[in-house]
Design a protein around this nucleic acid. Sequence first.
DNA 1: ACTATCCAAATAATCGATTATCTGTCAAGG
DNA 2: CCTTGACAGATAATCGATTATTTGGATAGT
Lengths: 245, 245
Amino acid sequence: MVPDDDGAFAPTTEDAPSSSGFLDDGKNTIGSQLASRLREAIISGELQAGSKINLDKARKTFNVSLSPLREGLARLISDGLVEFEDNRGYRVSSISLANLEEITTLREEFEVFALRESMRLGDVEWEGNVMRALHRLNRTERDAARPETLERWEELHREFHLTLISGCGKPILLHFCRLLLNLNDRYRRVFLTRTSGDRNVSQEHSEIAQGAVARDLDYSCDMLRQHIHRTGTNLRTHLATKGIL
Amino acid sequence: MVPDDDGAFAPTTEDAPSSSGFLDDGKNTIGSQLASRLREAIISGELQAGSKINLDKARKTFNVSLSPLREGLARLISDGLVEFEDNRGYRVSSISLANLEEITTLREEFEVFALRESMRLGDVEWEGNVMRALHRLNRTERDAARPETLERWEELHREFHLTLISGCGKPILLHFCRLLLNLNDRYRRVFLTRTSGDRNVSQEHSEIAQGAVARDLDYSCDMLRQHIHRTGTNLRTHLATKGIL
DNA sequence: ACTATCCAAATAATCGATTATCTGTCAAGG
DNA sequence: CCTTGACAGATAATCGATTATTTGGATAGT
């Protein structure tokens, strides 16, 4: 489990992604739990993009009071998954081709930059974390028939990408990348139940990771950029197919 | 007045910075007003960096109830000015040399990228907005003796930088740049009551802006990068002088 | 028919009180 | 002397009720 973002940019404390995923994992307050549930509901598409969130209904659906509900929604605003307007309430952020294109472009720029910095600054522990994340990801099958495997894969995939750039020593940059990854995952979860056949994604991840620990800056960065770009193109096609502009 | 961020990334609607600054300007709910007041209190240094925010005291100080207080604080979390932990409450984000360095680095990367995109994509209206923002900024004096002129200048300065990159057509990128600018301004407000004598900042702004509307990509981007870099170096010196690591 | 105005239902925002959690202190036991 | 546990005060989280705002529809005037 990738630990939730600290809310702010965690300028001081910054660890490598969870070493083993403790069970307790924070999640103390109702607000926190709600944020997780809502996030999952949005990323999985259960809550339709662009739809309004009625506080009263949500309150009943989740069986909570207004305060924690607002608390939870506030966090999703930070994540860019929810929008808010005074006296008009909350709504799920819309998706669009333009939005997806921007996310892809920014991921290319930021993640590649962060990867380069990680290769420049990362220590041996970072290398180890990368190899572990890669291994765990590649050992996990994605079976469209079983949704829980999809979720698991998404989780490990996000963790892999975050670990890759976790050595950059730049908390704010990591925060931005995490946001973009979240936004991107929503598109994948909604539109891609299986990997398209013409790509060997595992292979791509391996190449990036091995280049990274070998400190082959240009190679690894280039691979990552192409990887992100291809994913974007792929998603865009699906999006267009399903008739969203 | 630079319009407040829309809370989310405003993926659909995105205008050029306020054309003339209407007075009403939203700010409907207590939560919104509070967010503004708190933001100003933090950026101006009135609320000390790193300090804990006691909800009860804050409630009394600002004469509001908990709900809007939390609402306001939640927005500052999105801005990266406040941090939060379950059951531990809120605290003002700390400042540090490392944090300032990261902000500077990221501004160089992101703003320069956004400027390049703006020059590539911006229309005539964008050009006009840039020239207007430049003019207004250069016509405003900064007088250390009168704090209100400092605030005014900061506002126009922020608006200039945002306008410069407003043509890039990338709402999320703009959102990130706005955050970084906010974070950066806090350092300036706290540590720099006047421009250091060895720089002609107006001149720098003019060069960037004129290069931009002339679509001289490399020149303008280079000038902007240097401008940001110099500001960072400058602030770092002041920070070090005042004994903060 | 078309627009403007007013009302009522729906919805969001706020409040004050209550409950849950944490933090520091002090005493008992090792 | 150090550790552990229990208590009390401080602080945060949550709730239910109240107040303010918006929205959609009905009505009156042009």
